[in-house]
């Protein structure tokens, strides 16, 4: 194995370095792994191509041709079939530092003591391809490609956002998760503003309260929504199952406060129940929202069903009455 390296049928190289070669160069060249540059011919295993010699003396033919070396071997497999194995090696010379070259000629020891020169197939094999995925680079390239056509479209008003009517895709809308403009539109359709939909819209205290809420001023409880309502007690303000909606396909990160924010514009909420995992505390993906009024719930269904929230399309429907 002097002065040559070989690539075997397993794509494995074994390199031996001739002392003479090193005496001439004595260079400390860097040790570069060039495995992928090597030929890695596939093993040619052809059963019984020509009459093979007796199995007791396995025949081995070695043919050298320039930088290629061919080893033809005849072996008998376990089930009695004779096989011809052709291994093709590429011989390559390689420069290395003196210390590395000296170590290359060390005698094998320990568990490898009786191994033949070259890699032992019992311990060294070439495994399957490993595919590298460069996540960040790929994303950068994609986002660049995405942005360019968008820049062209921006001036032409070809794209219109369903939520805020801006010239961007709906999914890229900045108001996507706040639902603000959509809700306003919805309220316009119903002839109501989003705030004073509770109680009588014509009564003056409620209107004043609505105005105050808009201006951010403090409103005494008696002037707030429903403050003029009388005859209500704790006992009678029982949650109305008829005004409960079920929201499904929520993302795992959803919290109750998010739901509060999302559904508050439709009317006053009696209760929010978000199903959570006991251990992780993450949302299980569904929630029940109880409104005080069935109309609010109906509008919430109309407004939020099919709404994209945190990459997911929400599904909102009437909650089925609980069995107990």
């Amino acid at each position: 194995m002097h002065g040559e390296g070989k690539t075997g049928n397993f794509g494995v190289i074994c390199v031996g370095l001739m002392e003479g070669c090193l005496l001439i160069c004595r260079l400390f060249s860097s040790f570069v792994h060039l495995l992928n540059l090597f030929l890695s011919p596939t093993p040619v295993v052809t059963p019984k191509v020509r009459p093979a010699p007796p199995a007791t003396a396995p025949r081995k033919d070695v043919v050298k041709d320039g930088t290629l070396k061919k080893v033809v071997e005849f072996v008998e497999s376990e089930d009695g079939k004779k096989m011809k194995i052709t291994r093709t090696y590429k011989i390559e010379k390689r420069k290395a530092s003196k210390a590395v070259a000296r170590r290359k000629n060390w005698k094998k020891f320990g568990n490898a003591e009786f191994d033949a020169p070259g890699p032992n197939v019992a311990t060294t094999t070439v495994s399957d391809d490993v595919l590298m995925t460069f996540i960040t680079n790929k994303e950068d390239v994609e986002s660049q490609q995405e942005e360019d056509p968008m820049a062209k479209l921006r001036g032409q008003k070809m794209v219109q956002c369903r939520i805020c009517k801006g010239d961007h895709w709906t999914t890229k809308c900045p108001y996507k998760d706040t639902l603000g403009p959509m809700q306003k539109e919805l309220a316009d359709q119903l002839g109501l503003t989003s705030v004073d939909n509770e109680g009588d819209a014509t009564s003056s205290p409620a209107a004043a309260a609505a105005a105050a809420v808009k201006s951010g001023k403090y409103v005494p409880p008696v002037l707030r929504d429903g403050g003029t309502r009388r005859g209500e007690s704790m006992a009678t303000s029982r949650r109305d199952d008829n005004a409960t909606i079920r929201v499904t396909n929520l993302s795992e990160d959803t919290r109750e406060s998010d739901l509060q924010e999302l559904f508050r514009p439709f009317g006053s909420i009696a209760r929010i129940y978000l199903a959570k995992d006991k251990i992780t505390g993450q949302s299980k993906g569904f929630a029940f929202i109880s409104f005080h009024r069935r109309e609010d719930a109906a509008r919430a269904i109309a407004g939020v069903s099919g709404f994209g929230y945190d990459h997911l399309i929400l599904n909102v429907e009437w909650a089925k009455p609980s069995t107990n």
Partner: peptide, 12 residues
Amino acid sequence: YSLNGERLGSYN
């Protein structure tokens, strides 16, 4: 050997 994966030996 890191170049070809040949086992040089073991320390038992």
